[in-house]
Structure formats: C-alpha cells, structure tokens
Amino acid sequence: MGLVAIVTWLITAMLGVYLLYLWLSGGGPRRQAAKVTRFPVVLVFAHPALALCALGCWIAYMLTSGRAFAWLAFGVLAVSALLGFTMFTRWLGAGRHARGAERRFPLVAVLLHGLAGLVTFVLVLLTAAIATGL
C-alpha cells in the first residue's frame, strides 16, 4: 500500500504542477500584487512545499520502516491538504469566475488533483495505522 501511495502522490503532483503552471503563466503573482487573485502567493507555494516535505518523510518511512516517519508524513500531508482545501474553496467561491489567474483552471484538472490527493491522504493514513498496529 505504501508504494501505491507514492504512485498516487506522483499523479497528484503532476496535476498540481500543471495547475501551478497555469496560475504562473496567467500572471498569478502579478495579479496577487494587484489584489485580483484570491490565491495568496504564500498559500500557492506552501501547499506543494509541504506536500514535497511529506513525500520525503514517506520515502524515508518506506526505506527504513520507521513508524515515526509514517506519522510525520501524514501530519505534514494533512496540513498540505488543508491548504489545498482552502484554495479549492476559494476557487469555488468566486475564483474561477474572477479575473484572477486561477480562472484558467480546468474543472477536470482541479477535481482530479483533489481526488488523487484524497486517495493519497487515505492511503498514507491507512498505511501508517497498519504499521503501528492501530
């Protein structure tokens, strides 16, 4: 299950890179300075940075079987997921209809990124719980 989590993590990351590319190419940081976007730059970059840190912890867990790494990965991933959910709700609220760079996000890409992220989250939680005998 741990390797499946890595695969879904990578799928999620690829979709996220695509969305980040759309946001950056649509002038995201410039629009943020002009208060047109609903996505603060810190939020946009903290979400993937935390997800990458969590992935690093997960890889450490896979290499060492250290349960602490599994739970650390889950905790950091949970924070990243909350930031992602925050962006999703802002996008649903008016972001996709606003003048911001996020208006360019295809609904399918956003939904697939969120679904893959949710599957990854559940797999990491289940694997960490099984590893510790919960």
Score class of each variant (00 low, 15 high):
Val44Ala: 06
Val36Ser: 05
Leu22Gln: 15
Gly56Asn: 05
Gly66Lys: 07
Trp9Ile: 01
Leu115Asn: 06
Leu24Tyr: 01
Val36Ile: 15
Gly117His: 06
Leu63Arg: 14
Val41Lys: 07
Ala98Gln: 14
Ala51Ser: 13
Leu107Cys: 04
Ala49Ile: 03
Trp71Gln: 08
Ser25Gln: 08
Ala116Val: 11
Ala109His: 11
Leu111Ser: 09
Cys57Phe: 12
Ala128Gln: 11
Leu50Glu: 03
Leu20Pro: 03
Gly56Ser: 04
Leu125His: 07
Val110Trp: 10
Arg104Ser: 15
Val42Leu: 11
Ala54Thr: 08
Leu126Cys: 12
Ala60Glu: 05
Val36Cys: 12
Val108Ile: 06
Ala70Arg: 12
Gly66Ser: 07
Val108Glu: 14
Met14Ile: 15
Leu10Met: 04
Lys35Phe: 13
Phe105Asp: 09
Pro106Met: 14
Arg30Cys: 03
Ala33Lys: 14
Ala94Asp: 13
Arg96Glu: 02
Tyr21Lys: 14
Ala46Phe: 11
Gly28Trp: 11
Ala54Leu: 06
Arg38Ile: 11
Ala68Ile: 10
Ser65Ala: 06
Gly16Asp: 03
Ile59Gln: 15
Trp91Gln: 08
Trp9Cys: 02
Val122Gln: 07
Thr37Leu: 01
Val36Lys: 10
Trp71Ser: 00
Gln32Thr: 14
Trp58Ile: 03
Met62Lys: 10
Thr132Ile: 03
Leu20Met: 00
Trp58Arg: 14
Ala131Val: 05
Leu115Cys: 10
Ala34Asp: 12
Trp58Cys: 05
Leu3Tyr: 15
Gly27Lys: 08
Pro29Ser: 08
Phe45Tyr: 12
Ala34Lys: 04
Ser65Glu: 14
Leu43Tyr: 12
Val44Gln: 04
Ala13Phe: 15
Gly84Arg: 04
Tyr61Phe: 15
Ala13Glu: 02
Phe45Leu: 10
Thr86Arg: 15
Pro29Phe: 00
Ala73Glu: 05
Ala128Trp: 09
Met14Glu: 07
Thr37Met: 05
Phe45Ala: 10
Ala101Lys: 08
Phe39Tyr: 08
Ile130Phe: 10
Val17Gln: 04
Leu123Met: 13
Val44Leu: 00
Val110Asn: 13
Leu112Ile: 06
Arg31Asp: 02
Leu83Gln: 12
Arg30Glu: 07
Ala49Val: 03
Ala78Tyr: 04
Val110Glu: 05
Gly100Met: 06
Arg103Tyr: 01
Leu123Asp: 08
Ala128Val: 07
Ser80Val: 02
Gly28Asn: 03
Val76Ser: 12
Val7Ala: 06
Trp71Cys: 01
Phe74Leu: 15
Ala5Val: 10
Arg103Ile: 12
Leu112Gln: 06
Ala46Cys: 11
Leu22Gly: 02
Thr8Trp: 14
Leu24Val: 10
Leu125Cys: 01
Val41Met: 04
Trp71Lys: 01
Gly26Cys: 14
Leu134Thr: 07
Val17Cys: 03
Ala5Ile: 09
Thr86Ile: 08
Thr127Pro: 05
Lys35Ile: 04
Gln32Gly: 08
Arg38Gln: 11
Ala34His: 15
